[in-house]
Design a binder for these strands. Structure first.
Lengths: 347, 347
DNA sequence: CTGTTAGCGCCTTCAA
DNA sequence: TTGAAGGCGCTAACAG
């Protein structure tokens, strides 16, 4: 093959030092150097010191490719984001996810690879990438019913954790989630507690567990109170979607006195519509959102909402995955966080 | 070494097919199979067809580690985010960056590795990671004066592109940016056009080029018009920071009739302060922001702002990097996008 | 505790 | 156009 090392200009890129060089400099064999690097077991203190020093002097870092080739581990995990909606990335939810995962990965040497799971033919590529050992594990966020990620991953046997309940019930996929149903119920009960009797909802996408569950919670609360549960419009978790759902909702049910939006972004859209229609909040209509990831505090009026502990949750997901990778217990039971009511001016 | 392949339970994870197996199935040698996979040059149509079929049947994907070991390329690039402020991730700016990069990478096989550049000792780790061939190139976003990323990268000779002008002028690092100075000027001129004569600014962090340049633009516009340019408070691009800067600004200059905030998030914070103080917008004070990445449209009143083409810019950055990787031209001249004024109710 | 040895899966020269 | 052969940098038996 091409001898890259000595080719080219004098000022060619200085090659990364190899273990061989470290070993030579430390006066030991490659194997000893290798052992010294990987835990230092069965290595004399002297050798270990010599190796560490050589490593420091040379600024050595193991070649991941080489290591990966033999260990069959990559020291990287994928964050899988289904692409259906470009909106996913725009959601503060996603950002919270990344923060949580980064935090969990910080003390490790593991890198995060962002994998946008595209559709159609491209989907194959994602599946293969995941299956063929390019990453040690995966965290899936914003999973939809039709993206088939749940089954693909279950079959691939690749360690993985979902953030948000996976759609498939047949395969026991580990996940973390927030108690969306309870959250929806608490939000709705809060509205009832404020005197609302005609409460509509702007639901999330019904091909996502969060959408379905929050809707179910809203419904459960109303039914338990003997109130009507017909005022439902579906949004897509975005502000624009929330606005148009609000339009439809208000057109169909002009007498509403409360709205539970399944996300703050949608609630913000609804607030805009209410303002444009001259409907006062919370005077005439009270509004509760879901998430509390920044937007809720900065709308006008500020939104009462259910705090969604996304970062903590994602961190939990990453830690669950790390535990799996470390062989500590297989797929664990789901971890469910609970959403806290945060009361602000909108109710 | 341990024969992983045949060990363990019957239902052990089916091993990923190797090139060897593809070749055998196609009835050719490894080399031919390899050539067929990499461009198909110097391979007979028959052999090529046989290989493609075998690949399809086996669901073969090349082992990246093995390939990387010999080609010395990783087919992955890093998105480097300095961590000083956890706020970076929370900024819609960052999300726009990711979208742009993903879009550029979509037609390629290149993966995006997220690299949080931590401080102190951890910084060494980042530098080494970048230097030691773990990625083929890097895109740096949200670069600050003190993160030393500019010089580290210039020295490492790793192909890289900055999103936003790098601080260091000594090393010619390729970058894309928006014309921040002009943007600041246009925003300020818009305020003047609306009749404002006492215009303050909430500046961004002055250890970032965007912060400095937008401030310079504001100042240039005022000086050209012979207006005072003393009303400056520094924020940190966040909503909270913008709010406290607004407090200080209004305390020190109660007579302001216009504010240019160097980011929409900060402008939103300022709007909140103005509202709390009972100052009407745009009646008593007009406000212009910068970015237009979502928040501007949903504040109340909606913000006039300078549209920052982050996604396009980042896409450009990624394409620049890809071109470098493909050997097409070295570090190119900076690409500068221009910010467009978007007029809304706040002015 | 240490060095020797044998590959991991792939690309690429070299000779045919 | 093809196959044989070597080696990328590393880890992990194995024998000392």
């Amino acid at each position: 093959m091409t001898p890259r090392r000595d080719e080219g200009t004098p000022s060619a890129m200085p090659h990364a030092p190899t273990l061989e060089e470290v070993a030579r400099r430390a006066g030991v064999s490659r194997s000893t150097a290798s052992r010294a690097l990987n835990g230092g077991l069965k290595v004399s203190p002297v050798a270990l010191a010599a190796v560490s020093q050589a490593v420091a002097e040379l600024g050595y870092t193991p070649n991941r490719a080489a290591r990966s080739l033999v260990t069959r581990r990559t020291d990287s995990i994928a964050l899988v984001v289904p692409e259906p909606d470009e909106t996913v990335l725009n959601d503060p939810y996603f950002v919270g996810t990344m923060q949580g995962i980064s935090a969990a990965l910080e003390p490790t040497e593991i890198q995060l690879v962002l994998l946008i799971a595209r559709r159609g033919e491209q989907a194959q590529r994602t599946a293969r990438y995941l299956r063929n050992g390019h990453v040690d594990g995966a965290i899936v966020v914003s999973h939809h019913r039709d993206d088939a990620l749940d089954e693909a991953l279950a079959q691939s046997r690749l360690p993985c954790v979902f953030v948000g309940r996976p759609w498939s019930q047949t395969e026991p996929v580990p996940y973390v989630d927030v108690d969306n149903a309870r959250g929806g119920r608490v939000a709705t009960e809060h509205l009832m507690g404020r005197g609302c009797r005609r409460i509509g909802t702007i639901a999330g996408p019904l091909d996502m567990a969060a959408g379905v569950d929050r809707l179910a919670g809203w419904r459960a609360a109303l039914r338990a109170a003997g109130l009507p549960d017909a005022a439902v419009e579906r949004g897509d978790f975005t502000s624009v979607g929330g606005a148009s759902a609000a339009e439809r909702l208000l057109d169909a049910h002009p007498d509403l006195d409360g709205i539970f939006a399944a996300s703050d972004l949608m609630a913000a859209g609804a607030l805009g519509v209410l303002a444009r229609r001259g409907i006062s909040v919370p005077g005439q209509v009270r509004v509760v959102g879901f998430d509390d990831l920044g937007v809720a505090a900065s709308t006008s009026p500020p939104l009462t909402t259910m705090r969604n502990p996304v970062a903590e949750m994602s961190r939990g997901a990453a830690e669950l995955l790390l535990a799996q990778l470390a062989g500590k217990g297989g797929p664990a039971a789901p971890t469910i966080f609970s959403a806290q009511l945060v009361v602000r001016d909108s109710t």
